[in-house]
Nucleic acid binder design. Structure first.
Lengths: 171, 171
DNA sequence: CGATTCATGTAACTTGTTACATGATTAG
DNA sequence: CTAATCATGTAACAAGTTACATGAATCG
């Protein structure tokens, strides 16, 4: 059985400890989502598939109706096997950069695209710094968090620098 | 009529001068593809839609059978209007980073994920430097090319630095 | 008691990739 | 002559988002 990287996001988070689909979505949104987003529309069907394949086990809870999943031995093996495989996907969709790239058709729009990208980087930085301050990230998650913060700082600086330069050139 | 950013990639390239679908695909692959990829399966249908909406015009050529498109006045207007709109999409899918993030389940795989990301950045850098050496990029395309080169250098350095650190820690 | 959050799930849709089919022209 | 490149197109599939439906529990 083949699973998508998104399935391994779920599996990897269940390796940290038992969680519901709802919990996983929340974890995704405050960590991995900047380089691997996932919606409910993916998470719930994927939980079912992983469960059918025996990589995870669900247990219905009392009180508030919810299903808490935990990783099985088979699942832990599958996760480790996947971690040793060569990563394939490296993709980006950056509409601000695209607009800047095509800005020769309307040069006066270039600064605004740079500023939009800057705002985006700053918003991302803000969220990442909150996660850092929370102290939740340890081990490799903390390493990747540092990557997110430092790379965003670099990108924000670049946007600021070039926006400044363009504004001066035009003035 | 609503068009996707991919349609504007096509429109933007036709603003540089007339081209065939095949030409556009080649241009995409050596420029915009690192932050907005497009396949034939998108380009040809999109050319048809743009043509039906009157934003571009196709002209069949003699000799080798091909259709060369050029942007219309309506198309140029649509492109400029789009350039002034706030960019929406900022997404990334980085499987190497994902594996690093989940590496607490198999710490010995972390260095390999970092090295895979490093190889990927270096390959990207190589291609971007070739484009830079070709001198094809001018104006805003050159600015975005510099962004690609400098950000990739930063990321490659980060991977090298952290891979080194991990190797030392383990040793 | 009303708003918010917790919680699960699906259907319709959009986007994009891959693989294939087809065939002409050109370079060696 | 034959391999590569030019060139167009589509069908099947994969992946992912959005919007909606539903309802229980908790907080103020």
């Amino acid at each position: 059985m083949e699973f998508s990287p998104t399935a391994y996001v779920i599996l990897g988070m269940l390796a940290w400890g038992p969680r519901s689909g709802y919990d996983i979505k929340a974890d995704v949104d405050k960590s991995v989502r900047f380089f691997w987003a996932a919606s409910y529309g993916q998470i719930y069907p994927e939980l079912k598939r992983l469960s059918e394949a025996g990589l995870i086990e669900g247990q219905a809870q009392g009180g508030r109706r919810r299903t808490v999943y935990r990783i099985t031995d088979l699942g832990a093996e599958a996760l480790e096997a996947w971690l040793t495989e060569e990563p394939q996907t490296f993709e980006a969709r950056d509409e601000a950069l695209l607009k800047l790239f095509l800005a020769d058709a309307a040069p006066e729009t270039a600064v605004a695209s740079l500023e939009a990208k800057l705002r985006n980087q700053e918003a991302k930085l803000k969220r990442l710094r909150e996660v850092e301050a929370s102290g939740d990230a340890t081990g490799f998650t903390a390493l990747v968090l540092r990557y997110g913060i430092e790379s965003s700082e670099w990108m924000a600086d670049w946007c600021r620098r070039e926006a400044e330069r363009l504004r001066e050139e035009t003035a």
